[in-house]
Nucleic acid binder design. Structure first.
Lengths: 183, 183
DNA sequence: CAACAACTATTGACGTCAACAATTATTGCT
DNA sequence: AGCAATAATTGTTGACGTCAATAGTTGTTG
């Protein structure tokens, strides 16, 4: 404990109302506006929860990434597929689904979009005619090359206030907790 | 069935000098299913991106929290509002919106739900009849007290593979990058 | 070898959720 | 008094996850 998280939450409303106000309106008794014995553990700020922080920053990260990709007509999920294909030299859609955690039905649309943009291609699997193998096209590779730097800038912006050592430390920690759940 | 995991490569690319890459000069029918000159920076695994890891873990965190809250009929966002109210002794909806990062229109529904459950109440603001002040009810406080332990268990489950020192370190790092964007 | 179970990609329906625009009531300014 | 700004609210739209159903294909098994 003993973190300086209080900085994130401001003390309610200053309410510098100068005007003399009227009737107190509601006077039900089930609400107690009194400042109850503070410092109870259950009333700590939101940012005291690592889980909530992760949730929050995850949203921000996704937003940043999406606005960065927006000009290319893709979204984060497409980018994830591309990046996955870049390391795997072709994958069954079923694999994409399992590894990236998206529903099989979602993969369909994603690969459709990537094919429309010419970044990926569906090929018939030689041994199983049910399956399709998705591979990067040359222009897909080019896209990854060209946007790589900008993508890293986005991440850089996200972890802005951290120095190099801290970034590495954070990355290692995240990797550690990402490793157990297959993700 | 399990393919080799590519994710556990060395953490965080030091991102040394950007070595210039050569063009394979493939002008034919794109796509080379062959293992191309690997180790190019742009084809590192997805988990090499801190931003993507954050996005991914944020999703997981949200899911865990939601399944934990599911029995009480609330979701993460409701819980966030409650926790915020617990620290601020009443807040304008506008403040909730600004502090929690939710759209004003979202606050409406959230407070509606909380009122239905009897955990919060809308009160007319004394100085401005446009505003409503949202306060915790007594049973709202009770709810927070009762669910606090379980909530911390959820976070504990999330950061499972980390020891105490690492958890604290992670929390501090997240806090640091959460601080800049108001969030 | 013929019937059946399992599997891959796909489509469709439904509910949730977040981001925007528009509306109503109210306030502050001049 | 008039007018821009503001707080809460409604409505709409698009993205997204889940789940059920289907067509084509494979493997198994009786």
């Amino acid at each position: 404990m003993a973190h300086g998280y209080e900085m994130l939450e401001s003390p309610a409303v200053p309410s510098a109302g100068r005007t003399e106000h009227r009737e107190p309106a509601i006077t039900r008794q089930n609400v107690t506006p009194r400042a109850m014995d503070a410092d109870e553990p259950w009333m700590r700020g939101l940012h005291a929860d690592t889980g909530y922080l992760l949730y929050r920053l995850g949203l921000r990260s996704g937003q940043l990434f999406n606005t960065f990709l927006q000009e290319s007509g893709l979204r984060l999920r497409h980018y994830a597929v591309l990046r996955f294909l870049a390391t795997s030299e072709g994958a069954l859609q079923r694999e994409l689904s399992a590894r990236l955690g998206y529903d099989p039905s979602a993969i369909v649309g994603l690969v459709d979009d990537l094919e429309k943009q010419g970044f990926a291609e569906r090929r018939p699997a030689p041994d199983d005619r049910r399956s399709r193998i998705v591979v990067l096209t040359e222009s897909g590779r080019a896209f990854l090359r060209d946007t790589d730097e900008a993508g890293q800038r986005v991440t850089g912006e996200l972890v802005g206030p951290l120095d190099a050592a801290e970034r590495e430390s954070l990355h290692a920690l995240l990797l550690k907790i990402a490793a157990d759940g297959l993700n």
